[in-house]
Simulated scan of single mutants.
Amino acid sequence: MTTESASAPVGFIGLGKMGAPIARRLLDWPGGLTVCDVRAEVTEPFVAAGARSVLDPAQVATHARIICVTVVDDAQVTEVLTGPAGILRTAAPGTVVAVHSTIGDRTARELAARCAERDVEFVDAPVSGGAPGAMRGSLAVMIGGSAAAVDELSGPFGCFADLIVHAGPVGAGTRMKLARNLLHFISFTAAAEAQRLAEAAGIGLADLGKVVRHSDAVTGGPGAIMLRETTAPIDPDDFWFPILGHVRDLGEKDLALALELGDRLGIELPLAQLALTRLADGLGVAESALDKETS
């Protein structure tokens, strides 16, 4: 981060459930904060705390050199950037626009090209950690853009995030967020399946939830296995083979036991069945060392 970027004025567009707590972390930013939302009333607490409020994204761009956008979807992001009152109407060359909304990676690339025509730098910078993470300043930000933009943004992003990852060129931040949320929502679906099994077995769901949250906080949950650079099959001589082979063996045993319990209770567990058939291959240890030696 350069001395100039450490005091660059920041603009923030979109003060919804995620945008507002992120923007609040920027109220003390040395370069000042300009906010904008279609609902005038949500800007009032920011003005009371010292921020400037303006009516549209074009006015944000007259005051800010770094502009964060947290709106709902691709259409709104496109309107904020390229609409009649959009950022590109007034943005000065060298302005950096960071979109925290989760949009399509192709949309990100298309908007980056539009911005480049005006010498404005676009980055996709989706976040993970939810509103609680934003309030604590502990979000993860996944940036798709140039290394120079990452450096430019590190100061203001550091106000609301304690993990900033440069995922690659424009679009890469979005692709990383989609992979992360794939795990997130499949895990929710699996949690619902686990609750059905527990309920049928007479287990208290609230107590089960306590155990899951406690143990995931200790082990790291599903992310604990995301330590390799590739998903290719692991050679038996590799350091990771016995570690992930142990995960496979425990997983296959416990999944089989859960499926047997589900059969006895008349509960269908389609995700568990799929997990049993896919776990070993997914871990890269579908073939055991013994099998490989004797084949």
Rank of each mutant, 00 (worst) to 15 (best):
A8M: 04
L139G: 00
H246N: 14
T78R: 15
A149L: 01
C36F: 04
P30I: 00
A232D: 15
G202Q: 14
F185Y: 15
G158E: 06
T294G: 12
P169L: 09
R114W: 08
L271M: 11
L27M: 04
E199I: 07
A161W: 05
G209E: 07
F185G: 10
M226L: 15
H63S: 10
A161N: 04
E117K: 13
R65S: 12
T189Y: 11
I87A: 07
A147S: 09
F122I: 02
P57Q: 10
L55Q: 14
I103G: 03
A179I: 00
L183P: 07
E117F: 06
R118L: 00
Q59Y: 05
R114H: 13
I225G: 14
A148P: 10
R109S: 02
R248F: 12
V54M: 10
I143M: 05
V212C: 13
V285R: 04
P156D: 10
A49W: 02
A172M: 03
G133F: 00
P222L: 12
S53N: 05
V127R: 06
T62G: 07
D151Y: 02
T3N: 14
Q195M: 13
G130M: 13
I164N: 00
T70Q: 15
P84K: 14
E229L: 11
L111V: 06
P169E: 12
L111G: 01
A91D: 08
G31E: 12
F12Y: 14
T90H: 15
R175Q: 15
V218D: 12
E121L: 12
